[in-house]
């Protein structure tokens, strides 16, 4: 750990970052707050409405539904991807060419543009031209992600697992590599079981990468937009319409600036709270080291 020195001149080094991010973050944020308290018809016709939009949005059942769906989705994603990711990391070969090859193969889904991920699964899941949909139907499963809610959910989840489990696996892999060989040797002398090795040697060392993995997966699944948009278009009905898509529909589709802005801010506050919880956890874990 590096001992840092006090030096306020360091601000000059951070200033470009501050200005650059502030331009794209603070000005839009201020504008959204402005929109959220007014009824805007055009440039010259805007009326102050106070908290009305917030009232409307907070009591809108459509938004409750999409918030609930979002949480169910994000927690399902975590529940599947974190254990699976740990498992994959434990199975990966540790050294040599095979190790590098595995790393690269695992990383492939992460490098594909999100709309192409949607397209891949849109094609792959179709019963007429996709291998996955065709196989399921050939096996006698009545599968159609475009008309059946359950199938749509399963496909969106499967797509996310396909797309992002590698991230968790790569994180855990790098965490496992950081464990000194001596630990394993000691465990062997003690005749520790596989489970004991995992529980008392590997898992504690994975804690810090897992926190980052959970943070990234929670946040990124919380803002998911492109993949389900391409795959199901939010359907059937609204069954796979998550928060970002509800918001985008409101803002761009129906051009309801006021409610969309109020909704944006509520969404942002949730993200702020969760980020803060994780950030505090990470700082405390760094300190404990």
């Amino acid at each position: 750990m590096i001992i840092k020195t006090d030096n306020n001149k360091a601000w000059w080094l951070v200033l470009p970052v501050f200005l650059l991010v502030a331009f794209s973050a603070i000005i839009p944020l201020m504008t959204v707050v402005n929109y959220s308290v007014q009824d805007i018809f055009d440039q010259n016709n805007a009326y102050f409405v106070g908290a009305d939009w917030y009232r409307e949005v907070l009591r809108d059942p459509r938004l409750h539904d999409s918030l609930l769906r979002q949480f169910i989705y994000s927690f399902s994603v975590l529940a599947i991807e974190i254990p699976l990711g740990i498992g994959v990391a434990l199975m990966m070969p540790t050294k040599g060419r095979m190790g590098s090859l595995c790393l690269i193969l695992l990383a492939i889904p992460l490098l594909i543009p999100w709309n192409v991920v949607g397209t891949i699964w849109q094609i792959f899941g179709r019963a007429d031209i996709g291998l996955f949909g065709w196989t399921l139907n050939a096996l006698g499963v009545d599968y159609n992600y475009a008309s059946n809610t359950g199938d749509a959910w399963a496909t969106v989840l499967l797509m996310d697992v396909w797309h992002w489990t590698s991230l968790v696996a790569l994180l855990c892999y790098s965490g496992l590599r950081a464990i000194p060989e001596a630990f394993y040797q000691a465990a062997e002398i003690d005749r520790a079981s596989k489970w004991a090795v995992f529980r008392y040697i590997q898992l504690p060392r994975l804690k810090s990468v897992l926190v980052i993995g959970i943070l990234l997966r929670f946040m990124d699944s919380f803002m998911i937009y492109t993949e389900p948009f391409v795959l199901t278009g939010g359907g059937p009905g609204n069954s796979t319409t998550f928060l970002s898509q509800t918001l985008t529909k409101m803002a761009i589709g129906q051009f309801d600036l006021g409610p969309a802005a109020a909704f944006s801010l509520i969404y942002f506050l949730i993200v702020l709270l969760v980020s803060w919880l994780f950030f505090t956890t990470i700082t405390y874990m760094d300190k404990a080291k």
Binding site: M30, T31, V33, N34, V37, Q43, A46
Partner: peptide, 8 residues
């Protein structure tokens, strides 16, 4: 376009 209002 930022539509400033006094309270905000």
């Amino acid at each position: 376009w930022m539509a400033w209002t006094l309270p905000v």
